[in-house]
Simulated assay, not measured.
Amino acid sequence: MIEKAQLENAEETLELGRELGRSLPVNTTILLFGDLGAGKTTLVQGLGEGLGIRDPIVSPTFTLINEYLEGRLPLYHLDLYRLEPEDVLGITPEIYWEGIEVTPGITAIEWPQRLPYKPPTYLEIYLEFSGDRARQIRLNSVG
């Protein structure tokens, strides 16, 4: 099932993230696609707010993985922008989406096209520019 919507500004992107954070079940993996500046991290910030996370959500571009453990569910935020698929193997992303060695929660992955493999089920979110501040968003549930 693919759903499309228009997000007119960053606040609408945050609100979509908040709604997802309030409603997604444990062990949900979100694969976030979009160009630089398309709103992937903004959506994850809203997701964190919806989960009740009080810490600031920042892009893990250099740290690769940020873990936020104090919300309704833990949030694991991965950014694979600087990695090649073979490098991703070293961070073992499956421990997050399978809940192995970590408390099961929500896993949000930016630049998932660098994953050498994907989880069995996930939510794809595509963010594309459609104006100065607006974004076109597509959601697709897989598995």
Rank of each mutant, 00 (worst) to 15 (best):
I2C: 11
I2Q: 08
E3T: 12
A5W: 12
E8Q: 12
A10L: 14
A10R: 15
T13D: 02
L14H: 01
L14A: 02
L14W: 01
E15L: 15
L16C: 00
L16R: 02
L16E: 04
G17P: 01
R18D: 00
L20H: 00
R22S: 07
R22Y: 09
S23W: 09
S23D: 11
S23Y: 08
S23Q: 11
L24D: 06
P25Q: 14
N27C: 11
N27P: 04
T29V: 12
T29W: 03
L31W: 01
L32W: 08
L32D: 00
F33A: 03
F33W: 15
F33G: 03
F33C: 05
D35A: 14
G37C: 12
A38D: 06
G39Y: 03
G39W: 05
K40R: 13
T41R: 04
T41C: 11
T41Q: 10
L43F: 07
Q45F: 07
L47N: 03
L47V: 07
G48E: 05
E49I: 15
L51C: 08
G52T: 04
G52H: 01
I53T: 05
I53R: 01
I53W: 03
R54D: 07
I57Y: 01
I57Q: 00
T63A: 13
L64F: 13
L64E: 06
I65P: 02
N66Q: 14
L69S: 10
E70Y: 09
G71E: 07
P74A: 14
L75S: 01
H77K: 14
L78M: 15
L78V: 11
D79N: 12
D79P: 00
L80Q: 06
Y81G: 04
Y81Q: 09
R82V: 07
R82L: 11
L83C: 09
P85I: 04
E86Y: 15
D87N: 14
V88N: 01
L89H: 11
L89A: 08
T92K: 15
T92G: 12
P93T: 09
P93W: 15
P93N: 13
E94I: 04
W97G: 00
W97S: 02
E98W: 03
E98V: 00
G99P: 01
G99N: 07
G99F: 05
G99A: 13
I100K: 12
I100S: 07
E101R: 11
V102M: 08
V102L: 08
T103Y: 08
I106T: 01
I106V: 12
T107H: 03
T107D: 02
A108F: 05
A108L: 10
I109Q: 00
I109E: 05
I109P: 02
W111I: 07
W111R: 02
P112W: 01
P112R: 04
Q113H: 12
P119T: 13
P120E: 15
Y122V: 07
E124R: 15
I125W: 09
Y126F: 14
Y126G: 02
F129C: 04
F129N: 03
S130Q: 14
G131S: 10
R133S: 09
R133V: 06
A134T: 06
A134K: 12
A134I: 09
R135P: 01
R135K: 12
Q136L: 14
I137D: 03
R138W: 10
L139I: 08
L139Y: 05
V142D: 01
G143S: 06
G143H: 06
